[in-house]
Write a protein that binds this DNA or RNA. Sequence first.
RNA 1: GGGUAGGUACCGAAGCGGUCAAACGGGGCAGACUGUAAAUCUGCUGGCUAUGCCUUCAGAGGUUCGAAUCCUCUCCUGCCCA
Length: 389
Amino acid sequence: MSPEEQLEALTLGTAKILSREELLKKLRSGRPLRAKLGVDPTAPDIHLGHTVVLEKLRQFQVMGHQAVLIIGDFTATVGDPSGRSSTRPPLTREEVLGNAETYTDQAFKILDREQTEVVYNGDWFRGMNYEEVLKLNARVTMQQMLQREDFRNRIEGNKEVRLHEMQYPVMQGWDSVEVRADVELGGTDQLFNILVGRDMQKSQEMEPQVAMCLPILEGTDGARKMSKSYGNYIGVDESPAEMFGKAMSISDELMDRWYTLLLGGGRDLELHPMEAKKQLAAQLVARYHDAAAAVAARADFEAKFAKGDSEVQWPEVQLDDERRLITAVAIAYREGHGTERSNSEIRRLIQQGGVQLDGEKLNDPAADLPAAVTDKVLRLDKKRSVRLL
RNA sequence: GGGUAGGUACCGAAGCGGUCAAACGGGGCAGACUGUAAAUCUGCUGGCUAUGCCUUCAGAGGUUCGAAUCCUCUCCUGCCCA
């Protein structure tokens, strides 16, 4: 592939590149470029939002460039303030290391493990003394920091901004120096941090890295960015059924966005929106599991929601001699779906008609189960049911 | 360090001695309608052995028949000044 062709392919789907000219120049040098991606293991799971950027990094790999994955074991304990409206809760070192492990495992569903250089930024930060820290800090101005939107918003909203949060861009910038990055990938919310990396490199008389920003993927709620803390994510490690189901619950508008960002192309407008969504869901399952799983997930989904079809494999639950409805539902949630519900919650569900036995609403929380329930499907809520034994 | 305003449920925000498990909005959940979409309408949104009881209004004490509301101390945050 010629440098020009590479440039074309690499810039596809990106939101911002600083700058194309620099990238082309680097590509023309003919040497493998070092493409950096920093991830903070603040949560144990990689979700679809992360994959946008990981897939881009994978693309660099395929072209023969060197992917450098920085595990921010040190920076995670500080917490990236990017896009945050409040200070991140601190994580312990144990949590971070635990997360890092599942994180890399999941990242290698996308990246080629053999061809990825994995480094921990604690390796260089932990040994730094205060003098060195001060030197790094001298390279960034207060004004630059204060211009950042997330800090400005917090300041204007009279919310606290703690000093250590300002260290984050400095550290991320220094990472670029340590790994001699040619290109740094990140979401558009990372632009500032990536630019600090350029400054840091210039100050070390290195050729500055190219900033490559990818669009931020909205989560299943269609409003906020996909994030574990908003609970609007689909993890790459989730079961085919979960993945398929979650994907099906997104709005049509969001579906277009996901088609573009995750599958790299628009959807077929000839198709009924629901069919298009099923195909999207199936492709995602196929990507992170396999084709067979995608077919199965689709079939299972269709069986579950086709009216009158009770051929679905719901978890089976043994009630023993339990007759009281509330307790039965609690057991069904616990044994069948691994979730705990308080009695009050269950009472509400029952009163509001969420709980149904073979399609019949059971509205009275004080009632007992009907006499014969064996082999009947007890519906708990919109998404969960259980087969009684 | 000085002054000042505050800390209320998942979030924002009322309440400022009893009628407060605490208005209102957002979010979330459930029902109707649907395509597990959107929009819309309705209801719910601390817990329990449940017409009552228990735990919550930063924390610890106190006043009172009675406190989220008053007093004392402590912790935390914003703003202004240094």
